[in-house]
Nucleic acid binder design. Structure first.
Length: 342
DNA sequence: ACCTGTCAAGTCTGG
DNA sequence: CCAGACTTGACAGGT
């Protein structure tokens, strides 16, 4: 099994490279000249895109092929009071440049819209802004010229005291999205509400690939389900992207492997928080049993120390290899894990 | 240079 | 029914 590691949004190693500089609405409305304010927002967005490109080059330098782009590229883009503003046209060249770099280097990028995007909601207003938010994210991918393998990951959402009803509402409201948006979505199990098994059932029902977060599963798993027991079904939700069981049905450059999220609990008192780094043992513990049944997988590292945590994990992988574990380090951000035949 | 309260948005909990 | 927690990077305003 080929494993590619990636990280999220920002670097702790690159200086002055924030991809998510912003301006709050409160400060925007304080400005005397609205037009000048809009130009300033566009300028900030352009800087954010420029730093995103710098981050992608930084990834390339370390062999990192998997990266989550920040959702905060364009400040106030989906704010209800800003709907007469079109930030996309003036940023077209910058988006195209980022997309070209992603394509030219065979990278996998994604977005993770914030928790304000929730399709299980009973509120019409919340549903509308969720739709607006997803449209915004998909539009940015389209401006980058990236195909459907560039995806947006969301959670099912709140339960409102009735999980079954909330789940059905999710299926209905999510299913009503236009295919252009729906086909770019992935669904992740939550650390509080919808468990891995529940999310999987909804992912199957809506035909959406599932991103398994093994940390969320560890802290939200009342039935004591083993993640490996769900894995074959989770893997098969990625069938549309080329993976049906063991046999890829298209050339490697067109495939999109299943993706998981890994992080390590911050502490015993805050088990849901993210630690600075990732425990290599728990990663291998999950990967080894599924290695034989999964040709490739992408692993998103969610750690406070971002890219530094990824690089540290790769050092740990080298040590694991030296210690005789079934891991082979391929380059700066990829390993091969051998399947232990059970 | 450094610290603190605040930020557009949702949902859950506890009072 | 409402305030505060949750979570988190960055800003604004202060020292």
């Amino acid at each position: 099994m080929i494993v590619r590691f990636g990280f999220v949004a920002m670097s702790v190693l690159l200086e002055n490279a924030s991809p998510s500089r912003t301006m709050t609405y409160t400060n925007f409305v304080k400005l005397a000249d609205r037009e000048a304010g809009l130009r300033r927002l566009e300028r900030i967005a352009e800087e954010n895109l420029h730093n995103t490109l710098r981050l992608l080059k930084h990834c390339k330098y370390s062999d990192i092929q998997v990266y989550r782009i920040t959702s905060k590229l364009i400040p106030l883009a989906t704010h209800a009071e800003m709907q007469d503003w079109d930030p996309y046209a003036p940023l077209a060249a910058s988006f195209a440049e980022v997309g070209a770099f992603v394509r030219d280097n065979g990278m996998r990028v994604s977005f993770h819209p914030d928790h304000f995007t929730v399709f299980s909601t009973p509120r019409e207003e919340v549903l509308r802004s969720s739709h607006r938010d997803l449209n915004h994210h998909v539009r940015m991918f389209e401006m980058m010229g990236l195909d459907e393998r560039a995806t947006c990951n969301i959670h099912v959402g709140g339960t409102y005291g009735n999980k079954g009803e909330a789940g059905r509402r999710f299926v209905r409201q999510f299913g009503a999205l236009e295919p252009r948006i729906r086909r770019r979505m992935t669904l992740e199990n939550d650390d509080k509400t919808f468990t891995a098994a529940e999310t999987l059932a909804l992912a199957e029902e809506t035909g959406v690939p599932m991103v398994l977060d093994i940390h969320h599963h560890a802290v939200n798993n009342p039935d004591g389900e083993r993640a490996e027991a769900l894995w074959d079904r989770i893997r098969d939700t990625w069938g549309r992207f080329g993976w049906n069981g063991l046999k890829p049905d298209r050339p490697p450059e067109e495939l999109l492997p299943p993706k998981i999220h890994v992080s390590t609990p911050k502490s015993a008192t805050d088990p849901r928080g993210h630690a600075d780094y990732v425990d290599p043992g728990s990663v291998l513990e999950f990967l080894r049993p599924i290695a034989a049944s999964t040709p490739a997988i992408d692993v998103m590292i969610e750690a406070k120390r971002k890219d530094e945590a990824l690089l540290k994990l790769m050092e740990d992988m080298k040590a694991a290899e030296a210690a005789g574990l079934p891991v082979r380090v391929l380059d700066g951000a990829r390993v091969e894990v051998s399947g232990s035949v059970v």
